[in-house]
């Protein structure tokens, strides 16, 4: 893993990718800082921090778009796959390299509150909490981007897809308030998921009888749940969507509260996408 990490980190600074990411991030963050703190003579840094999430959405795709797409395009993935590095090592090496560049950039922005602290009182608990939250949130965003760069065929499509996915995770709380809450909608939601699951199963198993039997059993299960425990289906869509809401868990960090459940959520979310990335590479080897 160390070898891939080192190589990837080096590549960020041998290609424009790392500089563009840091430049864009620091430029926009600097603009916010200048406008909201320096020009208005305010020491309220929290408003600047709130705006930084928006910058993440824009710049994280720059950081992750080339991770795997470029390897596939240049056919250098063969070098990695034929070297004695495990697939998990490859994925983690690339992920941590991206996280390191992100972390370096984040540390540079800490100069802003440091400058302000000479001229006023700062709420350091809130600032530290927000930065820790940023780190975990950014890592989760990078994990999504890493997965998409493995799926996508080109850097451009990887960047667009990552941006769309991050945007979706950002507005997911807004969408939540519009989804139906009734038990029936919950049951229909489960059915749709089941159909998708069975379609995937059918692709692997290639035996429609097993798929049909599994479908019937699961359908009966859903009907029983709907008939016997309707209340458990209430607001199911909304609850399911909230699992993907990365930003809602960030709010507590920005209040200066360090919660273990949020940290565990971000780490498991990142681990899940990194696992998916590794599985996809493994699948490609077998297909």
């Amino acid at each position: 893993m160390r070898a891939v990490y080192k190589k990837e980190l080096k590549t960020y600074f041998l290609t424009p990718g790392g500089y563009i990411f840091m430049g864009a991030f620091l430029l926009i963050a600097g603009l916010f800082f200048t406008l909201q703190n320096l020009f208005s003579g305010s020491s309220d840094y929290s408003s600047v921090l709130g705006s930084l999430i928006l910058i993440f959405l824009l710049v994280v795709p720059i950081l992750t778009m080339r991770l795997f797409t470029e390897e596939k395009r240049q056919k250098t993935d063969i070098l990695l796959l034929s070297s004695p590095v495990s697939i998990q090592g490859i994925v983690l090496g690339k992920f941590f390299a991206a996280v390191t560049v992100f972390l370096i950039t984040l540390i540079i922005t800490m100069l802003f509150p440091l400058l302000l602290s000479f001229h006023g009182r700062m709420d350091w608990a809130q600032i530290w909490g927000t930065y820790i939250g940023f780190f975990f949130l950014g890592s989760a965003f990078i994990a999504i981007g890493t997965y998409i760069s493995e799926v996508a065929e080109s850097q451009t499509s990887a960047a667009i897809l990552t941006f769309s996915a991050l945007l979706a995770s950002w507005i997911i709380d807004y969408i939540r308030s519009f989804v139906p809450m009734s038990p029936l909608s919950g049951a229909i939601f489960i059915l749709i998921l089941l159909i998708a699951g069975l379609a995937l199963f059918q692709r692997k198993a290639e035996d429609w009888r097993i798929t049909a039997a599994a479908g019937v059993v699961l359908l009966i299960g859903v009907i029983i749940v709907y008939a016997a425990a309707q209340e458990s289906l209430y607001g199911l869509i909304s609850k399911s969507i909230s699992w993907f809401s990365l930003t809602s868990r960030f709010q507590r960090f920005s209040m200066g509260i360090l919660r273990l459940d949020a940290v565990v959520y971000y780490i498991s979310f990142s681990a899940f996408f990194l696992y998916l990335t590794g599985s996809r590479i493994e699948n490609r080897r077998w297909s």
Binding site: T11, L14, Q74, K75, T76, I78, S82
Partner: peptide
């Protein structure tokens, strides 16, 4: 292993 297309990091 030398594959058909040498796996080179051209920026190095």
């Amino acid at each position: 292993y030398l594959p058909e297309n040498p796996p080179l990091y051209v920026e190095m």
